[in-house]
Design a protein around this nucleic acid. Structure first.
Length: 414
DNA sequence: ACTCAAATCTACA
DNA sequence: CTAACGTGTAGATTTGAGT
């Protein structure tokens, strides 16, 4: 039996949401002028995160440095991002979407899939229903969305990417040859720059070229797994279900680009400690422990280095994570100036599962007491005085604030 | 030759 | 003229050490 899937995508999400706030305050609508959400062009962390349609007409692209965008359009309005606002708008958007569908999957902050299969008695006309959802969002929340309609997630998502803004598109299987196959391979979901280069190098330029090629040829170019998946996508095949429950996180990571190069260990250690504290706190909130710690850094030539270690026992202690992160960093850093440093925790274990097994084993019980003692020691030493620690470390004052905002957001979800 | 872990690469919003 | 370039997460692929 055919499924019926909607994909709903907020048009220029961050910029639209910022515009809604401004319009409410009687300020000009950023959507009608060349504008973007982006960083400070004088700092090196400034890239374009979202852009208005007029900005797009100047050739400004998401991900490019703000300084470059300014050269393309000197009048470009640049607004810094505000995640607290985005979370609120996202929540309101998803609430409306969810009210229409038996099953909704949150795909990102501004995208959802709805599984509308079996709703034909309530919603006999899918296109009309899509317009209804889109118009309700525009009327109640003040921003526009695109809705893509098809029989699977891939096709629905491709459809929502057609002409913007404020549009409903279908991409049913019989429309694939006319609507999807003429598109460049790069437009296919999960097909990025590296794969594009390999395909066009072999003369495969459109999605239709891919679909008409032998699956084996695509696999030879892109690897077995990716080749299989992307060839199926090119043919419009995707059996993945719309999942209401988000997958459990497989890791937690944090990384920070600095305005000034890092050139000494003394500069690194407080940053590393704060980053360990941030990721460990996030992990503890999800009641997880990790058995793998890794540090990453980026040199001025944009080359990344990472170094990781496996722990004998899973941990969620900031101090233990920090000790490992510090060792990993010292082991791998040769002293080259750095622009970015990051910490990641992976190979997560369930905290509750771990605790159960601990109770059954005397030796482990002993160890657990020691862990608790260590934790108390850490609490005594550092307390919950995040602000004090933040001030030690953080010349730009940004890391801790962002982390607190994120934790707050996670709280609101629950 | 196999396997596990580590390191690197790719992709996406 | 070129180069410019954030953050968080996931998964695949490649590399390397040990057996």
């Amino acid at each position: 039996m055919n499924r019926l899937i909607f994909h709903i995508d907020v048009n220029s999400a961050f910029l639209s949401w910022e515009s809604v706030r401004r319009v409410k305050q009687g300020l000009p609508d950023l959507r009608n002028v060349p504008a973007c959400i982006g960083g400070d062009p004088r700092k090196r962390t400034g890239i374009v995160v979202a852009k208005s349609i007029p900005a797009k007409k100047y050739g400004i692209q998401t991900g490019e440095p703000v300084a470059m965008a300014l050269r393309k359009c000197p009048d470009l309005v640049i607004v810094k991002s505000d995640f607290e606002l985005y979370i609120k708008c996202s929540r309101a958007f998803k609430e409306i979407c969810a009210s229409y569908a038996p099953v909704m999957e949150s795909f990102s902050i501004d995208e959802v899939f709805l599984d509308m299969t079996g709703t034909s008695l309530i919603y006999p006309d899918p296109i009309k229903t899509a317009h209804e959802i889109k118009d309700k969002i525009r009327k109640e929340l003040g921003f526009t969305v695109n809705v893509g309609i098809s029989t699977n997630k891939l096709l629905a998502k491709m459809a929502s990417d057609f002409e913007k803004p404020d549009k409903v598109h279908t991409l049913f299987p019989d429309e694939i040859p006319t609507k999807m196959w003429p598109l460049p391979v790069r437009d296919l979901l999960f097909l990025g720059k590296a794969s594009e280069k390999k395909l066009t190098g072999a003369g495969i330029c459109t999605i239709g070229d891919m679909a008409h090629a032998k699956e084996r040829e695509i696999q030879a170019l892109l690897g077995n797994k990716a080749g299989h998946q992307l060839w199926q996508y090119a043919c419009g095949i995707d059996d993945s279900p719309v999942r209401a429950q988000p997958e459990e996180a497989k890791g937690f990571s944090v990384e920070t680009t600095f305005n000034d190069d890092i050139v000494s260990v003394e500069q690194v250690l407080p940053i590393l400690l704060e980053q360990c504290d941030i990721v460990a706190t996030r992990m503890r909130r999800k009641e997880k422990k990790c058995t793998s710690v890794s540090v990453t850094f980026r040199t001025l030539d944009f080359r990344n280095k990472s170094h990781q270690t496996t722990l004998a026992n899973a941990t969620d202690l900031t101090d233990e994570i920090y000790k490992n992160a510090k060792r990993l960093f010292v082991e791998s850093w040769k002293g080259e100036p750095l622009r970015l440093i990051g910490v990641a925790l992976t190979n997560l274990k369930d905290e509750s599962f771990e605790q159960l097994s601990l109770f059954e084993d005397n030796e482990k019980k002993e160890r657990r007491r020691k862990l608790d003692a260590t934790m108390d020691e850490i609490r005594r030493k550092y307390g919950n005085d995040k602000i004090k620690r933040a001030s030690i470390m953080n010349s730009n004052g940004g890391i801790a604030r962002k982390a607190r905002a994120q934790i707050k957001n996670e709280d609101e979800k629950e």
